[in-house]
Design a protein around this nucleic acid. Structure first.
Length: 559
RNA sequence: AGGGGUAUAGCCAAGCGGUAAGGCAACGGGUUUUGAUCCCGUCAUGCGGAGGUUCGAAUCCUCCUACCCCUGCCA
């Protein structure tokens, strides 16, 4: 929470809060909450909400609660709870007090439902789902009252008790609050506040046969927790009158207020929990934490840092207008963080053999290279030079194209941190493929530019005799279309990028990379940012590409 | 004549009646033993459209248009 505190661009929610503090609304307190339903993994869109809620609390010296909105046991599970807790922590946030659950408040919520019944403001309705839909009316026509709307308080009490006891079957009836079946806001047409579910709940076990709806649970939970600013996404805007109605008609201990902001949309990906789950269930990806997934755990495995995600959330702002943020912004955020914080190393992903004919067999020379070009505190690494080297296949062309800054037949190039070499001979196999380059090195170019000629440029390399074998996974955007959900006649699955994962084996990393730990980030010079996969071992080294470096050569080639 | 929202550059976004911040992208140029980073510069006489009020309007008023959300016993 470094630069976030001070020079933070303010948003409309912060403006409201500052006015509230000034007018001493909520006693000048700021208490927010992040309220996920544990029915899926957190994604980048949730990160926006997390940063907003926790960031707001930090900024105004308040607190933020982590509360699981667990009112629908059939879709929820402990696995999701565990992943969410871990993701929030990883992002660097700490909630105030214990983890909270809406299910902690089931008894109080039930008692408030009874209160409403006694006030004549709630009733048990025997209409089935289909009938209820008919009675609800449509967007343009008012609904009509249920025939069960005028049951007596005593009857409603008895019926609700039966629902609670489990003596009424699932779906046989619901508890509704009595508001206005003719309201232009459909959420006010006697919304359901309790339904029967004879389901086992991951927190409350088999204690309850009835579960409160979102509308009945959320605001009241906010009130119980003394939440001052209940921040949610735009689709709940129409629920605000109901939120307020319940707060005003119940003897709740505080008066929280709901504010809505636009959810995050990112191009070349999706953030629908349902569709993300489909990708996992149908094995289009490797799991919720597949590095191609926009989930927090996927981004983490991809090599994104908490800092980069928080900075990204600062960058995109908080407003009420729907937009689609360019993936390039997220990429910019991670490049920015990793450029300053990732140590540099060399790794040859598609090796081409280079023999230095004027360097003695069995000899070895060492170079101390800075781990970072601008940060001495990151120290040095030791790189070994010898007769048998490996360079990147794409760094050699027999005939240099225009503006070529790499190696070509007869030409010279700098090996990063070492000598300038010249390609004297190109060796091909029977198929005509280049299999080896015979080169000479210029001993006079150690640390200085050559005299009398110029090297084309600088390329990376490793010593074939002691470099470390590894696997490199090149990840790219998951979809080929900016808006994979945009074509109504086609499934988003049709737009999965077949090259979103390219696995390279037989790669060779410099020796300093032999002892790395999962999740360490590196810049492989000229190749991009990579991190050690969480399942990587010293016997089976695996690096995931987080993002490429900006590549102006690619633009020159295209143009 | 359903209700609720939103429109500022290719994208995100400041602006709150006094003459269009910033970031991303893009495009020039400089430095560079990473075609990276870094640095410098360019990029809205224009704020969805049309009227109106005002000395002055992206900001206020009127009308219009486009897009988003709402008819779960999901959240």
């Amino acid at each position: 929470m470094t630069k976030q505190d001070s020079v933070k661009p303010t948003n409309f929610i912060h403006q409201i809060i500052e006015q509230d503090i000034e007018k001493n609304v909520h006693g000048g307190q700021v208490i927010t909450r992040f309220p996920p339903e544990p029915n899926g993994y957190l994604h980048i869109g949730h990160a926006k909400s997390i940063c907003l809620n926790f960031g707001t609390a930090i900024k105004y010296g308040g607190q933020c609660h982590l509360r699981f909105d667990d009112t629908n046991p059939e879709k929820e599970s402990q696995e999701y709870i565990d992943s969410i807790v871990s993701d929030v922590r990883w992002l660097g946030f700490q909630w105030a007090g214990d983890i909270r659950y809406t299910s902690d408040y089931f008894q109080q919520l039930h008692d408030w439902a009874v209160y409403l019944i006694k006030e004549g403001k709630a009733y048990v309705d025997d209409l089935n789902a289909e009938q209820m839909r008919e009675y609800r009316g449509t967007l343009t026509e008012p609904g009509k009252n249920s025939p069960y709307r005028d049951r007596s308080v005593e009857e409603n009490l008895a019926l609700f008790e039966q629902m609670k006891d489990g003596t009424r079957p699932e779906g046989s009836c619901v508890l509704r609050v009595k508001i206005d079946m003719a309201s232009p806001n459909i959420n006010m047409r006697d919304p359901v506040i309790y339904r029967i579910r004879h389901a086992h709940h991951h927190q409350s076990g088999d204690q309850w046969k009835i579960y409160p709806s979102y509308d009945f649970a959320h605001g009241q939970s906010d009130a119980i927790e003394q939440i001052t600013h209940s921040i949610c996404t735009l689709e709940f805007e129409d629920h605000r009158p109901l939120y307020d109605w319940l707060i005003n008609n119940l003897p709740v201990p505080s008066q929280p207020k709901q504010y809505e902001f636009a959810r995050l949309n990112l191009n070349y990906t999706i953030t629908s929990k349902r569709k993300l789950k489909q990708l996992v269930d149908e094995k289009h990806v490797d799991g919720w934490n597949d590095p191609r997934m926009p989930t927090i755990s996927g981004l983490r495995r991809r090599g994104y840092t908490p800092t980069s995600i928080r900075n990204f959330c600062d960058m995109i702002g908080v407003t009420r207008s729907n937009g689609i943020v360019d993936m390039a912004m997220l990429e910019s955020a991670i490049r920015d963080d990793l450029d300053t914080n990732a140590p540099r190393a060399m790794c040859v992903t598609r090796p081409l053999k280079v023999t230095i004919t004027n360097f003695a067999e069995g000899e070895e020379e060492f170079f101390e290279l800075a781990a970072h070009p601008k940060d001495e505190s990151m120290g040095n690494r030791r790189v070994s030079f010898g007769r048998n080297l490996l360079i990147e296949q794409e760094d050699f062309e027999e005939v240099a194209p225009r503006k070529w800054k790499r190696l070509a037949a007869g030409e010279a190039v700098r090996l990063r941190g070492a000598y300038v070499i010249r390609c004297e001979e190109v060796i091909k196999n029977d198929a005509g493929e280049i299999v080896e380059l015979k080169c000479t090195y210029d001993p006079a170019t150690k640390g200085v530019n050559p005299e009398g000629y110029k090297a084309n440029g600088v390329i990376h390399w490793v010593n074939a005799d002691n470099s470390v074998p590894c696997e490199v996974r090149l990840y790219d955007r998951l979809f080929t279309e900016a808006n994979p959900e945009g074509d109504k006649s086609r499934s988003f699955l049709d737009f999965i990028n077949p090259e979103s994962l390219v696995v390279l084996t037989g790669c060779r990393a410099e020796p300093s990379l032999a002892e790395v730990k999962p999740e360490q980030n590196f810049q492989f010079e000229r190749m991009g940012y990579f991190c050690v996969d969480q399942n990587s071992t010293s016997e089976n080294l695996v690096f995931n590409r987080t993002v490429t470096l900006r590549d102006s050569w690619a633009k020159i080639q295209q143009g």
